[in-house]
Design a protein around this nucleic acid. Structure first.
Length: 284
DNA sequence: GCGACAG
DNA sequence: ATCTTGTCGC
């Protein structure tokens, strides 16, 4: 393999079929550790009393390169939704993107980001993490949000911006019709499997957005709690924790104080702990 | 051949 | 995921 790399050639490719087969069994294995219901006191408390930190994670890529990416974790205060902590790290993805197996590509590096914070300042760990992608609303009921939840051992909520065609849930037209019935922010309808099991909820996250977001359980939270908290974290269509992660794309070198508005008050936490080694100009 | 395909 | 300008609407 070293010789092949020196010659600029690719390593012998493992048949994707084999990889998928392996990953399917790994998903089934990890799924055994999944916890579907509420496990924290704040989750059932009125107004989510006791919840003070919500997290968001995401990966962003450089145009032509599907291997190099910037993995980010942000922690926001709740209910203020102000940024308390931000971690950006350039990483090299080992795994390719295969629909239904996003977790193998993204979960490991995101779990590492959580681990870094766990080591540096556990008191700043998020009590729940919003994940860009599905949780139980998935072909085998184990999407990225479940995957990360199990790896990190933290409550996670899956939020997808596009509908994943799971099962034979229903006609696309019937789905569109239900969407048209969502009148205001907070309105939602269940995403049921053919057997009647509810895997998620389509949520109109704000009054202004017509296109819903798809919320599902990741880990250690109930769907009802996930839905209510997601709505509570939406100023715009995308939940603030995930939106703020996006706001940090390509800004690995910039200090937070240079960002719009800067800090509104002193913060006990370091804002950027790890450093992106990719020049800002190459991002986005 | 055509549609589907989270990020 | 990423590439991209304007445009329509509140």
């Amino acid at each position: 393999n070293d010789l092949l790399q020196q010659l600029g050639l690719e390593k012998p490719a493992v048949p994707q079929e084999e990889v998928v087969k392996q990953w399917e069994s790994e998903q089934a294995q990890l799924k055994l550790q999944l916890v579907e219901g509420d496990t924290e006191e704040w989750q059932t408390a009125p107004g989510f009393a006791g919840l003070t930190r919500v997290g968001g994670v995401d990966l962003s890529f450089i145009k032509g390169d599907d291997r190099r990416a910037c993995a980010q974790l942000v922690v926001l205060s709740y209910p203020e939704l102000e940024v308390l902590y931000e971690d950006s790290q350039m990483i090299d993805l080992g795994a390719p993107y295969i629909a239904g197996f996003l977790g193998f590509r993204e979960a490991p590096c995101l779990a590492e980001a959580v681990h870094r914070l766990e080591q540096s300042d556990p008191s700043c760990l998020p009590q729940v993490i919003f994940v860009d992608g599905n949780g139980l609303f998935h072909y085998r009921e184990f999407g990225l949000a479940c995957h990360l939840g199990v790896l990190a051992g933290l409550p996670c909520i899956g939020v997808a911006k596009n509908l994943l065609q799971v099962d034979g849930m229903e006609d696309k037209q019937e789905h569109q019709h239900k969407i048209s019935l969502l009148q205001k922010g907070g309105d939602s309808f269940p995403l049921k499997t053919r057997s009647g099991r509810v895997l998620g909820q389509a949520l109109r996250s704000s009054d202004k957005s017509t296109k819903p977001i798809y919320v599902s359980v990741g880990h250690r939270i109930s769907l009802d709690t996930a839905l209510r908290l997601t709505h509570a974290c939406c100023k715009y269509r995308v939940p603030e924790p995930i939106r703020q992660v996006g706001a940090g794309k390509g800004r690995g070198y910039r200090s937070v104080s240079q960002r719009e508005g800067g800090l509104k008050r002193p913060c006990a936490f370091p804002l950027i702990v790890s450093i992106s080694r990719t020049p800002v100009s190459t991002m986005r």
